[in-house]
Computed example of a mutant assay.
Amino acid sequence: MTVLIAEKDPTSLSVDEIGCARTAISRLAWINGITGKREPVDTFVDAAAHLSGADASFDHYERLLIEIGRRGVLSDEECFALHAAYLTQRADGV
């Protein structure tokens, strides 16, 4: 599976060899002009999550990854793989 960094950029990342997930997320966001700022829909999503008892808070890299997915820069599967790599590396203190 290949994660395209940008349509204009032939450079790609192999999901099997992501390396530092934080770097990959930051690079994808920067190339695609993504800042991770909250969108109006985020307020609704937070309220719905709170009401369902599924409170979740996202750090900067996770907010970037959410926006990367919303804009269609990566497929759902690619976002999931990159998020899994990020969570694993964060848990390992990388």
Rank of each mutant, 00 (worst) to 15 (best):
M1W: 02
T2N: 15
T2V: 09
I5T: 08
I5P: 03
A6M: 12
A6Q: 09
E7M: 00
E7G: 06
K8V: 15
D9M: 05
P10D: 12
T11A: 05
T11N: 12
S12N: 10
S12R: 04
S12E: 04
V15E: 12
V15M: 08
E17Y: 12
E17Q: 14
I18E: 00
I18T: 06
G19S: 00
C20R: 10
A21H: 13
A21G: 03
R22K: 07
R22C: 15
T23F: 12
T23I: 13
T23E: 09
T23S: 12
I25P: 02
R27C: 05
A29D: 01
G33Y: 08
G33R: 09
G33C: 10
G33N: 15
T35A: 04
T35E: 06
G36Y: 09
G36E: 07
K37P: 13
K37V: 01
R38M: 12
P40N: 02
V41W: 09
V41G: 05
V41Q: 05
D42F: 01
T43P: 10
D46Y: 08
A47Q: 11
A49C: 15
A49P: 15
A49V: 07
A49M: 11
L51F: 03
L51D: 08
S52V: 12
G53C: 02
A54P: 14
A54F: 15
D55R: 09
A56V: 13
A56K: 07
F58I: 14
D59R: 00
E62I: 04
L64R: 04
E67L: 06
E67I: 09
I68W: 00
I68C: 03
I68R: 03
G69K: 01
G69I: 07
R70M: 11
G72N: 01
G72D: 01
V73H: 02
S75E: 05
D76K: 07
D76A: 11
D76Y: 13
E78N: 11
C79Y: 09
L82F: 01
L82S: 05
H83F: 08
A85H: 03
A85D: 03
Y86D: 02
L87R: 09
T88N: 14
T88E: 13
T88D: 10
Q89L: 02
Q89F: 00
A91T: 05
G93Q: 02
V94M: 11
V94E: 13
